[in-house]
Design a protein around this nucleic acid. Structure first.
Lengths: 210, 210
DNA sequence: TAGATAAACGACCGGTCGTTCGTATAGTCT
DNA sequence: AGACTATACGAACGACCGGTCGTTTATCTA
């Protein structure tokens, strides 16, 4: 319980480095993440890293963990502020779009970049990323099921199917908004999910019209 | 017009190399595409490449061009075999899913990998990729407009909006099918577009039920 | 105060990267 | 036959990569 100034400083360093690493990886990917450049970005020396992580893979794994926490705080938590049901489902979609539009990460989305990079590279990092993705899909599915149970979505809805649709319509914003017209793409992504939910909702007045 | 055996051989080499490059880049990305590994995969020497391309960027640009041609042959052309309208639109979606499911490229999709990689890296490659993406989106949009003109889609349909949805629902298959259950994801992607089109189509019998 | 410990550093290693250069070979043209 | 040219090669380069090592500095503990 004694407060060790040394360990506290180390913890601060780790957190700062992981934040930078996630931001950098959202642009360059976890593989293109060079320890040298990361050192420059954090004002530390390259060799100093190995006091905190055994090798690059450990840093990558911790970066995934850090990104999961960030996603929970910036996307999931805000959505949980909305009332359960179809409104919470749409709030989740909007929170995600806001995360992208707000340029929280310079590359848009850590997970998108890392999924595209590691889907064909078996290993510990891929396993963690797949686990995070499964958790995310399961979370959306649960919100769908909640909405069905509350009678706010048609009972004929297939939760896994709708979860895939919502996720896909949001995911594609990351690259397309950077290669095409950002404002237009964000509008398409928002309206696509909104109209889909309104069509399935017995009481569309729960959701904005447009 | 005289057939030069030397140039013919060079052309064959270039085509073989570009095919390998596109396949490799669908896994590693265009940046992670190492000339050394590419040389081994094609049975040539690394230095021999520079007889064909000034530098790596030229090779990358040609690889994008090759991938565009491949996409036209393997996805767009088959779809054009279907009658214009909503059936052609769905045939396009199915041809794309077949391209992924058939493992034509080991990484699933060249464009997906390259878009994720270059959306934040300005330069000639990014410009070409963005141009290819604009062309692809415009193509889907045109098929939507055709279907509307033929009365096979509700006149209230926003073509750009629907094109985004179809593209997004197909795009996300690339990573998700590799990180989750492939068969399930393919089913979600297929059914999502199918049901969306059937709901907008005055004569749903034009499309399969499921 | 002396010893232990954690954080961070500079110098350096072997390996791979993209690229250059000089050269050999084989097909084409005059 | 001789000049020319496209293809391809081996050797070598400078830059950068992930990672190791020994050391210094600051802090905590006995």
């Amino acid at each position: 319980m004694t407060q060790d100034g040394r360990r506290a400083k180390g913890l601060r360093s780790r957190e700062a480095i992981l934040g930078q690493a996630v931001a950098l990886a959202s642009v360059e990917g976890l593989g293109g993440l060079s320890l040298g450049r990361l050192a420059v970005a954090t004002g530390l020396s390259k060799s100093g890293f190995f006091a905190h992580w055994r090798d690059k893979e450990q840093l990558q794994l911790d970066a995934v963990g850090w990104a999961v926490r960030q996603w929970r705080e910036r996307v999931i938590a805000p959505a949980l502020g909305a009332p359960a049901g179809v409104r919470r489902l749409f709030a989740l979609h909007e929170a995600r779009l806001a995360f992208y539009a707000g340029r929280v990460l310079p590359g848009g989305c850590f997970f998108f970049a890392v999924q595209a990079e590691f889907d064909d590279h078996p290993g510990a990092v891929r396993s963690r990323v797949a686990e995070a993705l499964r958790g995310w899909e399961a979370f959306i599915r649960r919100l769908v099921e909640e909405a069905v149970e509350l009678g706010e979505l048609s009972p004929e809805v297939n939760p896994a199917q709708l979860a895939y649709e919502i996720d896909a319509l949001g995911d594609m914003v990351v690259t397309h908004s950077r290669l095409l017209d950002e404002h237009e793409i964000l509008g398409h992504a928002r309206r696509a999910v909104l109209q889909r939910l309104r069509a399935l909702c017995p009481d569309p007045s729960l959701l904005p019209e447009d």
